[in-house]
Amino acid sequence: MSDHSDVLHQVAAWSRTGVGVALATVVSTWGSAPRPAGSLLAVNERGEFVGSVSGGCIEGAVVAEAVAAIADGKHRLLEYGVTNDRAWEVGLACGGTIQVYVEKIG
């Protein structure tokens, strides 16, 4: 089974049980980003997640934003990279930059 199908099925499974879910999607990358545009990460309100938007370096930050999106219902466009002023916190070790769109399902 393919990556994206696993992630979408998990989103549907969480939604069916009434758990809040958000979906994060890599929408663009510059430089040596580890995962291409279109990569998916699904997060539930408890902070559990499937899929990936990076090699693991920014998953923590994206999961936190996704949990916030589930709470306030607002979609977000996030950017991470070495030029980001939060780079010391969640920068990409590979030196790339990625933009991630996060939205609540429902």
């Binding site: 994206h4 199908s5 979408l8 099925h9 989103v11 549907a12 939604s15 979906l23 999607t25 929408v27 979609h75 466009l77 769109y101 939205e103 609540k104 399902i105 429902g106």
Partner: peptide
Amino acid sequence: MKPELLSQLLADVEQKRSVVLCTDLASG
């Protein structure tokens, strides 16, 4: 994303149809 749209997307994936999810990044 609305749950109905997710269901349609999953139906396409399961029935092995090529589909493109188009999301307006400003309005959602």
